[in-house]
Each structure stands twice: as C-alpha cells, then as structure tokens.
Design a protein around this nucleic acid. Structure first.
Length: 237
DNA sequence: CTATCGCAGCGTCAAATATA
DNA sequence: TATATTTGACGCTGCGATAG
C-alpha cells in the first residue's frame, strides 16, 4: 500500500473507534452489547457482524503496522474485517431518535416540493438549524453557514439518452452503447462519491459538535454532583 | 530553492445495502 | 431478485508548511 493509502486506512479505523466511543457514551451501553442489540448497527447479509469492537479495531491498526512490513494483509481481508457500517444518514437518524436536539437529523430529500432554488440550497444557519441539498438538518453546535450546490435532478448536460436496444444492430453500435453505459455509470458514481463525501463531512461535523455539547453537559453534571455532595454532607467544623 | 511531509480532494472499483 | 445507491479502499494529484 502506498503511504497515502495506508494513512487513510488508519484514519478510517480511528473514525470507527471514535464512533464506538461516542455511541457508547451516549446511551451508557458497552460497545459489544450495541452490536448485539437493535441499535443502529446491522449485520451484513452474510450474517457477519459489521462492527469491529474497539479492541479489534485497535488490533487491526497495530497488526497493520507489522503487516505492512510483511506485506501480508490484502485488501480483501481488510474488507472482511472492516465491513461496512450503515450509511451516515442512517446512523445520524438513529442517533437523533435517541437524543433529540443533540444530534442533527438527516431527513429525506424534499427540496423540490419546498421551493428551494434549483441549483443552490441556501444555508442560513443562525442558530441550530441548517439545511443541505439532501434535506434539513438540525444541530446544536456552531455550524458554519455555507452553500451547497443541490444535486442535479436530471442528467448532466452532454449526456445523451440511449437509443432503444432494439435499434442497435452492428457490433460497433453495441460497443458504443457499452461505452456510453460505462461513461454514464462512471459519471453517476462520480457525483455519488462527491455527495457521499459531503455527507461524510457533515456527519463528522455533527459528531464533533455533539462531543462539544456532551462535554459541556458532563462538566455541568459533575459540578452539580459536587454541589449536592457539599449540601448533603457538610463538613463538621 | 528543493525535497519531503501531511493533508484534502478527486476518480474509480468493488462490495454492501436499499429499493422497486 | 434485479437494479440502483452508498460508501470503504486505493491510488493519484495539488497545495502549503517546513527543514536542509
């Protein structure tokens, strides 16, 4: 693996560790029990648990160091270990149903009916609500105000719709059709990847703001506890 | 000035997941 | 179940910071 690729791999592990930590703190459950119960996590279709535990992830990161020198772990094995989590949208929605007001909620896309401009979703974020191209989010943290170009609903300019399959005759036409389909697929995936990365960034921001909120809450509760202790058990002087 | 590093973003592939 | 969508992983590029 290249230096860059490996760096990103470790980063991914750290993200999973962070999520496990945050979610465990959120509802007081330990990570393993979350994987078992009806939480936001899910199992893959093959029945394998999609969530590596903290220890597993740490082990992965450590073993990867040695594996790099040995050149042992291939990408397939990694994929098995780091199998996919639910989408960011899903995770956030799950979290938001647990803790209202603390976690932003990603709603389904309905910008068209709500009369938003065709290409720009204005992000007026005075306090705790912000909107994205995929819908409306709420957040308690200090979210930046910015504009996100809404995804184009139709095909981008320059894309010509396919002729009906029945109209194709020669092998050359079939090849052209295959090429066109591939280009269309690549273009759609390109856009999807951009959108996915944008969602991921929002997701990370939401988690960060949530951490900030919870830290403040924690601090207040500790102070409150100290106060109550002082009241209940005054020092005998 | 040049080499190196760290980071962010992009395009692509492949697999997991969602949906019709 | 077939198809569409989503996202992790990878490799690559460009940019700014820093050391030599």
């Amino acid at each position: 693996m290249s230096k860059c690729g490996r760096k990103k791999y470790i980063r991914t592990n750290l993200r999973q560790m962070t999520m496990e930590t945050i979610e465990s703190h959120q509802d007081g459950r330990v990570t393993d029990s979350m994987a078992e119960g009806g939480s936001a996590h899910m199992q893959t279709q093959t029945g394998q648990n999609s969530i590596p535990t903290l220890a597993q992830v740490a082990t992965i990161a450590e073993t990867d160091e040695s594996a790099e020198s040995e050149g042992v772990i291939d990408s397939h094995k990694r994929r098995e270990i780091l199998s996919r989590r639910p989408s960011y949208r899903k995770i956030l929605n799950e979290l938001s149903s647990d803790v209202h007001g603390v976690v932003p909620k990603i709603e389904e896309e309905k910008s068209e009916e709500e009369g938003t401009p065709p290409n720009i979703a204005t992000m007026a974020v005075p306090t705790s609500i912000y909107q994205t191209s995929t819908g409306q989010y709420t957040a308690t943290g200090d979210m930046p105000t910015y504009q996100i170009p809404a995804p184009t609903t139709g095909l981008p300019q320059g894309v010509v719709m396919a002729a009906s399959p029945g109209s194709l005759h020669s092998p050359q036409q079939l090849a052209e059709e295959a090429t066109r389909k591939r280009e269309l697929r690549l273009m759609k995936n390109r856009e999807a990847a951009k959108e996915c990365r944008r969602r991921k960034k929002e997701y990370v921001k939401c988690l960060e703001s949530r951490v900030a909120v919870l830290e403040v809450q924690n601090k207040k509760l500790i102070e409150e506890l100290e106060t109550l202790r002082d009241i209940c058990s005054p020092k005998a002087d």
